[in-house]
Simulated assay, not measured.
Amino acid sequence: MIEIPAQTGVAFTLRPGQRLRVRDPEGLQVSDLFCFNRTDPGEWLSSGRSVDYADTLLLTTGHALYSNRSRVMLRIVEDEVGRHDFLMTPCSLAMFRLVAGNEEWHPSCHENLAKSLAPFGISPDQISTTFNIFMNVVFEPSGRLHIEPPLSRVGQSILFQAEMELLVGLTACSHEETNAGRCKPITYELLDP
């Protein structure tokens, strides 16, 4: 297992058939995932298409994550938590300013994804809505959204299988509120078929 320290991110590649396990080693920690077609960065992860084709906001075992071109990028093979978010964009410096009223610099998932993906030629503007692993966003009948503590417990994980050549960005989320008040590490491993 490879550790992503609290409030940081990484980027790596996946081959078709290769699996990615993301684990919450301490519990109550979110991890933001975004990916691109490794050979064509004009194809990227699409929240809208994934939710549309699954007919649910709560993607879990058996669901696929689709690209903006309606092709499967990842499949969820195993899910020990069953509650993730695909509505919220990655936390950003702008979000901390606009929503939290924080005018000082704060680590953010968007910045960590941008830094990690930059060596692969990805610009910050190419990073869109992330699949927020373990994030617990509650949606009320009125349409109002609010963030509750993650449901993930110590050691729980989610397992994905790549369906194309992928470039993946992954974080240990930087937003204290999202992570029950304290940011913690995330671990991941790449498993060959």
Rank of each mutant, 00 (worst) to 15 (best):
Q18P: 05
T13E: 13
F36I: 07
R21L: 07
W44V: 07
S46W: 06
P25Q: 02
R23G: 01
G27Y: 04
G17V: 04
E43I: 10
F36Q: 11
A11I: 02
L14N: 06
G48K: 08
V22L: 06
Q18G: 07
L45E: 01
D40T: 07
L14K: 05
R38M: 13
E43V: 11
R19C: 04
G17Y: 08
R19A: 02
L33C: 00
N37D: 14
P16C: 11
S47T: 00
S46N: 08
P16N: 11
S50H: 06
L45M: 05
E43K: 10
R23V: 12
S47Y: 02
R38Y: 14
G17K: 05
S46M: 09
V22Q: 01
G48P: 00
V30K: 07
L28P: 12
V22H: 09
P41T: 15
P25D: 02
T39M: 13
R23L: 10
E26T: 05
Q29P: 04
C35E: 00
G17M: 06
T8S: 15
E43N: 11
S47D: 06
N37L: 07
F36V: 03
L45A: 03
G42M: 14
D32Q: 01
T8Q: 14
S50M: 06
Q18W: 08
S47H: 04
A11N: 02
P16R: 07
R15T: 13
P25A: 01
G27R: 10
D40M: 12
Q29A: 02
R15Y: 10
V10E: 13
V30N: 09
S47N: 08
R38S: 14
G9W: 05
L28I: 13
G17T: 07
R23M: 12
A11P: 05
S47A: 11
D40N: 15
R23T: 13
P16E: 10
L33H: 02
L28F: 15
N37T: 05
Q7E: 12
R19K: 14
P41V: 14
V22M: 07
F12R: 01
G42T: 14
V30S: 01
P41I: 14
G27V: 01
V30T: 04
G42H: 15
R23E: 08
S46Q: 08
F34C: 00
R21A: 04
T8F: 13
T13D: 06
G42E: 15
T8H: 14
F36H: 09
W44P: 07
P16L: 08
R19E: 05
T13H: 15
R15D: 12
R38A: 15
D40F: 11
D32R: 00
L20C: 09
A11S: 12
P41A: 11
R23Q: 11
P16S: 09
T13M: 13
T13I: 10
L45W: 03
L33P: 00
D24K: 06
T39H: 15
D24C: 04
P41H: 15
W44S: 13
E43T: 10
E43F: 12
P25R: 04
E43M: 11
L14P: 10
R49W: 12
L14H: 09
V30L: 02
D40R: 14
S31P: 04
L28G: 12
L28H: 13
E26P: 06
A11K: 03
D40W: 13
G42K: 14
G27L: 07
D24Q: 03
Q29G: 01
L14A: 09
